[in-house]
Amino acid sequence: MSRPELVCPAGTPAALRTAVDAGADAVYCGFQNATNARNFPGLNFTPDEMAQGVAYAHDRGAKVLLAVNSFPTAGRFDLWRDAVDAGARLGVDAVIVADIGVAEYVAERHPDLRLHLSVQAAASSPEAIRYYVREFGVKRVVPPRILTVAEIRQIKSEIPCEIETFVFGNHGLMVEGRCCLTNYVTGLSTNMDGVCSPAAQVHYDKGPDGSVTTRLGDFTFDCFGPDEQAGYPTICKGRYTTPARDESYYAFEEPVSLNLAELLPQLIEAGVEAFKIEGRQRSRAYVRQVVSNFRAAIDQVLAGQEPHLDDLVALTEGQKQTVGAFGSKKWR
């Protein structure tokens, strides 16, 4: 059994150090602009910080993966080109890309730089993955969070590259890289601007009875009673009405987080080379706790023991967790 890599989020230099200290084999991070899919205020790295982060990680035997995984629009390609060039110059261990044009640029200009295919590329079949391997020399793929473990095992047996799966964090419901719900509501695009349900357009409207209505832009996504904790208004975790239902319901998914801790042995057995923890927007405390727990769990599985994780449910969205699509086809 090969030892899978634990790939951890680093939204800030401090989070990078925390993740490395907590046992990350690799961290992923981005620059402070639209070139990555977590372009949130206060997050991400300047080139100087990236250089220091690379040095910190490398000194401790960890890798740095640079996310350049949004979609450049025509006329703006230079920004993505510069991000890739800077990554190569600063010695990152791989770049994570989603756009075919960016992949081609890396393959042509930086043939020695390791290329990872982002979840945002939505490569959900062996053929899609083999396309990126054949045309651009992709070395690792992160498939969308819609596959069962059995399907991951099948894909792994048919592709000539490594596979990295999400194991913890936000539970994406829509095919990544194929969702413009945020742009429809806010005028800012997940693919083009790297934002999803931007905080600047979130409103918590208090009613006279103490109830809270959560809004993103002009649209309402949930209502909470005076004693309930109001959740963040994410479009795909909102409540709606439809003629087939008597009451409002979560049309897409409940506010739950992905936690595949219990599936780790199966995923390792399926040949997954790397496990990814989502959450570049999360705190250092979150990073420390989640990373150290998964580090221990993976090491326990490799040692032939039952993995023991602390209860991480308190850290999850809505304090509920799921194995989502990974457990069974019935999720679909």
């Binding site: 829509m174 969702c179 239902r245 319901y249 897409f252």
Partner: peptide, 14 residues
Amino acid sequence: ASLAVSARCYHARA
């Protein structure tokens, strides 16, 4: 406008 696709069928879910 097509805004998103998923693996999950939201018609079936409803």
